[in-house]
Design a protein around this nucleic acid. Structure first.
Lengths: 374, 374
DNA sequence: CCGCAGAATGTAAACGTTTACAGGACCGCT
DNA sequence: AGCGGTCCTGTAAACGTTTACATTCTGCGG
């Protein structure tokens, strides 16, 4: 027996059961369609009706059921973030950047971190499908990179700091940053510049190495390869590389570590060996991690604005979501900034700098004009 | 004209449109109910049927629509995390802990960070309602705490490191940790122990101060209040406090900073004033932030296992979700661990320690027996 | 051969939105 | 009066699951 169309099972609503759009409609004496229209500001509704609806919604403390909404419009207003087991500070900063941008755009973020192996990562991606409108995957490890390529092509994805990445990608300007740092060292008179590499599989590490090599080619180089030391982005590996450098017959005048952690390790090794920085050895790093400014002496490095990376990654993803078919794949790079602190000096007997005022530093955006005092 | 019941609009599925449970049912030659049952393992189905269904699902690359599922069962398998604008390392660690636990339990996490003021935080909570099965709110600032109390009582909530918290709460054992540290200092012979406070509004800071004061009462104290210095959990404030201490007529033999950042500031101040640590001054902190082990000398501190905090917070929340009506509010505390490094020495002319092997440290769980070498 | 218990499966009604489509009211013209 | 607009609003069909209830099998004791 068909019941009259607009009738619905009466709601109890004595308490604890959330009000639905029907309750609001009933109380405002309108239809659910109108309520929906008012609340979404989607169509033109008479001012008075609108007021009534809003009042009813407020009275009932109505909050729309997102699941129902998502089901209906097939959008969750949520993006997923998949991260490898990455170092703490980076992790938090990139999320912060994304979160900020996402919130402004009315999106939520679903995060899943600490994935060290491909299988696990894929599994997570799978469980996120349908739950998110788009995905942000961070895959600095080149062995992981190809994997997401193949998969889930129906879902908008942007890759962060990925190695190859045939898809839409955003990454740090590692190559440019490394070259800028080399340029700085060269300007100080250094020519015999050693390099401590990052992990061979890491995309960032590779690009930084490439930048170093590129710059070395234009210098009247000695046996270049002898100046490269393997590292693993850890302090321990930096320390080890530092010891090797100390033993070398012909020491470099400067050492460029592919990241700050290794630079910190270098500093420890040189301190242990009695080599003074920056007087007899220049040390520089990459990333500008928080510790960088608190080691002694404060570390010269290339700053990476991670929060901005996150922000821009989000707007890139948003673009992919809204315009799924692009004529060309999006590629973006975020610039790095040279931060000059206490660990570098000229190559010629090292103009022994006076102790700088607490935490003095000079900053220079890569690709910009000459820097000025901060 | 009513169409036969089980008929449905034919699906195109040439591509890009995700398969639904109906597609799977059709392909396997069963009903949607059966598919649902197989995929959820909810009821007993014939082995053969089950195999067919699974095969069909696999073939179609079927993945259930979570929105529909959530709508149907009124559960999203997602929890929300709301964080204030908190320091980076903490932020990431706590999320990591929660994430790990959540994933094991089949939950997703929706995060929103960087909220400095109550209004904004409330707004976020509002948008999360209905989207999450439970909420984890971190509110170390006492001025924020009362606010969530009043609200959204229908949603399971646990508070992290909250000040008052009439609800279910988990927090760090700040009081116990501070007392343990004081005990350690006392055992070394220190009696004139200064304290650098954290922000007055911060719940953690308050508890640590309370622990300090509690211990000081049992010591033959001098003018106790003169030993307390205001700080703000920042290095700058630690540096400033250090300068004040240097100027004091009757210097303390040890300084206990309410967090590591301030302890680092203290070290810098003492270094600048030529006061040697630990020979003429003992310095200790709280938190064991990553930098702690890399400053010179490495910092003695109370370690807080933040990831564990996150893990336990999650299981607490899960408990609240599954048993909404508890006879009593849940309270939990996570223990802290004493980590002895290079910045503390005995009070009596400071047994000038030899340089320790690289990064030597001694660890002792609070509330356990005597610690042993790590 | 019947009846029946239990197992396996199917049917269709929720779940709470959005939105295409269909009116109804009102107005100004013929 | 009839017509063609505008505006505004209502109706009901999706969206893709889960699940109470109904139905069909299947084997078995009588």
């Amino acid at each position: 027996m068909p019941i009259p169309t607009s009738a619905r099972k009466p709601r109890r609503l004595h308490h604890a059961v959330a009000a639905t759009i029907h309750d609001v409609a009933a109380r405002a004496g309108v239809s659910v369609a109108t309520v929906s229209r008012v609340l979404n500001g989607i169509a033109v509704v008479r001012e008075e009706t609108s007021r009534d609806v809003r009042a009813a919604a407020k009275f009932l403390r109505y909050v729309p059921n997102v699941a129902a909404r998502a089901l209906s419009i097939r959008r969750s207003q949520t993006i997923g973030i998949v991260l490898p087991d990455v170092h703490g500070e980076f992790f938090s900063e990139v999320i912060r950047g994304i979160d900020l941008a996402a919130r402004r755009a009315g999106y939520h973020i679903l995060v899943s971190g600490s994935h060290s192996e491909p299988g696990e990562m894929l599994e997570v991606v799978e469980t996120m499908r349908g739950r998110v409108d788009g995905l942000m995957i961070m895959a600095p490890d080149v062995t992981l990179a190809p994997i997401e390529e193949l998969r889930v092509r129906e879902l908008p994805i942007v890759l962060l700091n990925a190695a190859s990445g045939n898809g839409d990608t955003i990454s740090i300007d590692n190559f440019g940053g490394a070259r800028a740092m080399m340029h700085h060292l060269h300007a100080l008179g250094h020519e015999r510049i050693a390099f401590v590499c990052g992990p061979a599989h890491n995309a960032d590490a590779r690009e930084r190495l490439r930048g170093y090599r590129h710059s070395m080619r234009s210098l009247p180089a000695a046996s270049v390869r002898a100046l490269e030391h393997q590292g693993a982005f850890t302090e321990e590996s930096g320390f080890a590389a530092g010891q090797k450098i100390c033993e070398a017959a012909l020491k470099p005048t400067a050492v460029f570590a592919a990241n700050d952690s290794m630079a910190v390790g270098l500093l420890a090794a040189f301190a242990a060996a009695g080599i003074r920085v920056p007087e007899s050895m220049t040390v520089v790093g990459f990333d500008d991690i928080p510790i960088a400014r608190y080691v002694a002496p404060p570390l010269t490095t290339m700053r990476v604005d991670i929060a901005e990376l996150g922000r821009r990654a989000f707007s890139l993803l948003l673009d992919v979501i809204n315009n799924p078919v692009a004529h060309k794949t999006r590629r973006e790079r975020v610039a790095t900034t040279l931060v000059v602190r206490g660990t570098c000096a000229g190559a010629t007997q090292g103009t022994p700098k006076k102790t700088q005022p607490h935490r003095a530093e000079r900053i220079q955006k890569s690709g910009r004009k000459k820097g000025e005092l901060s």
